[in-house]
Design a protein around this nucleic acid. Structure first.
Length: 576
RNA sequence: GCAUCGAUGGUCUAGUGGCAUGACUUUGGCCUUCCAAGCCAAUAGCCCGGGUUCAAUUCCCGGUCGAUGCACCA
């Protein structure tokens, strides 16, 4: 329960004050769209990323790679970002408002205005009113505003580069290496966690829309005809709310449905997409997102990229921002690999051998280059290629090269029939892409796990973080700062550190105050050394969420905490 | 980017054309046998730049950041 005020204000105030999230370079004036993670925020973010790695790297076996954040222009020409990641903008000459040129055109009946060129758009807009001030747009200039940050590689301006707008392209560009790494077998996957950059026109909403943000993306390469996930059994009966296209069009509530049924009813395109919907659901809940504030929404046909076969967003409900898209899960088909193949000249395919070698009877045309060469000179090569693909008649064949027609007589080539051995086929995989916005996850966790309650007339602020995510995992207090209690507490702290547990020792102020300090930063457990400890070598362990305490042997503290933190042991079971 | 509003110790806040309030937090000390107790002390602030003025935290202009609306946006 939140007792007072706007939860966003309360959460961000705490995050700032306790060192989770800070405005960047505050002493020079912060910059919108950029944030710093402070000591606790950076620690917590790393733990969220490690949780993600547990799911994708350890469990799925998709190894992590790391590519530069600066990419050569060619990559983003191929990916379509140089052309497509730009908005057609214009500025109203009267009110100086920046406007989306294609949106105005579409509002006035121009279908598919997004594909028009800048001059075409500017001609179309001439007589239209500005949506902001109603003034006639007149002789208006339409320009591209590309959302990528641009830079130069090397001195001068020899080579143009861009800060990556997504981590995915680095994985695609490494495809041929990855195929070899995974020994030419499908499916395989690679993941990347790192910074991406988008020069947002107007970033607002704190951590939700950043110009520099962290993505965790997986690119899973699958055989286009085999979209059954090998471990689908894990999630066949997993149920979660799906807001499909039909539900959205009929304003129906999300459908709670098992993954098996979602696929068999055609709600979700295939097992791979369904598998990662379920995995994402599990991961987000595990990270601390409230299950009842999480839904999966399918892209409507007009918002889905033309090449995508199916696309879903994991949306997390924020009191402040409404439903926030936090994870995108798409079947991108072979779009990306095809684009990189076309631009780079590499094949971007995997050779898949058949179980048994096949033979096909093929008619092959062998040109007589001894004659064709001298006769057609520069065109000879093209003619021989066209000839190889032609289907000759009785006395010869007519082919065309560059629009010019040639008749090649029967005696200028030989036709042979032969059995050709076909050992396999080059397959261009389809890409299943789950793409996570880590910063949005972080905000959602803060908002969902922040709590206030009234305790003896005081507001108690608690971050109810899952123990795995909490930046500090345990606190150790001497009840009194004397009589040797402090030495015992210090030695317990040391024993925790030796177990790899981040523990904070605190002997400052009243015991209640120390508990509150830890509650605020989400520390799940606190160990207190009191006078009984001197008698029987037990200490109390206090659970953040219930504030209950249980006595355990001092020597059991490191192992007990280890089990509590990794979730093997539940605090309630400690009681007996 | 436009319009409106705002910005005072770490946090919340009072107030002013002339020495800038108070509370909480934090630090040190005293006290204290389990959930922000008490006492003493300390640290720490008027978003930035320019203008008006003898004097600007205060008034004016510009900027930055934040909130809201428009626009934009996965």
């Amino acid at each position: 329960m939140i007792l007072m005020g706007d939860i966003y204000e309360s959460v961000m105030e705490l995050a700032k004050r306790r060192g989770f999230v800070w405005p960047t370079s505050e002493c020079y004036g912060a910059v919108a769209g950029f944030i710093d993670y402070g000591p606790l925020g950076a620690m917590m973010k790393r733990k969220v990323e490690d949780l993600w790695r547990d799911f994708y790297v350890i469990r799925e076996g998709y190894y992590e790679i790391e590519c530069p954040t600066v990419g050569a222009e060619a990559i983003y020409i191929a990916s379509g970002h140089v052309k497509g990641f730009a908005d057609k903008m214009c500025q109203c000459p009267h009110c100086r408002e920046y406007l989306r040129a294609d949106h105005i055109a579409e509002a006035h009946g121009k279908a598919n205005a997004a594909v028009l060129s800048a001059p075409e758009l500017s001609a179309f807009l001439r007589l239209l009113p500005c949506p902001a001030c109603e003034g006639e747009l007149g002789d208006i200039e339409v320009f591209d505003f590309n959302l990528m940050f641009e830079t130069q590689i090397g001195p001068g301006s020899q080579r143009k580069g861009y800060l990556r707008p997504e981590t995915a392209q680095g994985i695609f560009a490494d495809f041929n290496r990855l195929v070899r790494f995974y020994r030419n077998k499908l499916p395989f996957g690679a993941v990347q966690i790192g910074k991406s950059y988008r020069n947002e026109i107007s970033p607002r909403q704190g951590m939700i829309r950043l110009r520099e943000f962290t993505q965790a993306e997986a690119e899973i390469f699958v055989h286009p005809e085999h979209k059954e996930h090998p471990n689908f059994a894990l999630y066949t009966d997993y149920e979660m709310p799906l807001l499909g296209i039909v539900q959205q069009q009929t304003s129906a509530p999300p459908l709670r449905i098992s993954m098996k049924n979602a696929v068999s009813r055609g709600l979700v395109a295939n097992e791979y997409v369904a598998y990662y919907l379920a995995l994402t659901h599990e991961l987000l809940v595990c990270a601390g997102v409230r299950e009842e504030k999480l839904r999966f929404r399918q892209h409507l046909p007009d918002e889905r990229a033309h090449y995508a076969e199916d696309c879903w967003d994991a949306e997390i409900f924020s009191e402040r921002f409404g439903w926030v898209e936090t994870v995108g899960i798409a079947d991108r088909t072979d779009y990306d690999l095809r684009a990189h193949a076309a631009h780079s000249g590499d094949s971007f395919t995997v050779f898949i051998p058949f179980d048994t070698v096949r033979y096909e009877r093929k008619r092959r045309i062998i040109p007589d280059m001894g004659v064709l060469g001298p006769r057609y000179r520069g065109k000879a090569k093209q003619i021989s290629e066209a000839l190889a693909a032609a289907d000759p008649g009785e006395d010869g064949v007519e082919i065309s090269v560059d629009g010019e027609r040639f008749f090649i007589a029967r005696d200028l080539y030989r036709e042979v029939e032969e059995d050709v051995e076909i050992r396999g086929i080059d397959v261009r995989p389809h890409v299943i892409e789950p793409s996570y916005g880590i910063d949005r996850m972080m905000y959602a966790i803060f908002e969902h796990r922040y709590d206030e309650e009234m305790v003896e007339g005081e507001i108690r602020k608690v971050l109810r973080l899952p123990p795995r995510i909490a930046p500090v995992q345990a606190a150790v207090f001497p009840l009194m700062n004397r009589d040797g209690l402090d030495e015992i507490a210090l030695s317990i702290t040391q024993s925790l550190v030796e177990q790899g547990i981040l523990a904070q020792y605190d002997d400052s102020g009243a015991i209640g105050r120390r508990y509150r300090r830890q509650d605020e930063i989400g520390t799940p457990f606190a160990i207190t050394v009191d006078y009984d400890t001197l008698e029987d070598s037990t200490v109390t362990i206090r659970d953040r969420d219930s504030m209950n305490q249980v006595r355990i042997a001092k020597n059991d503290v490191p192992e007990t905490l280890r089990l509590l933190i990794n979730g093997t042991l539940n605090f309630d079971l400690l009681k007996k």
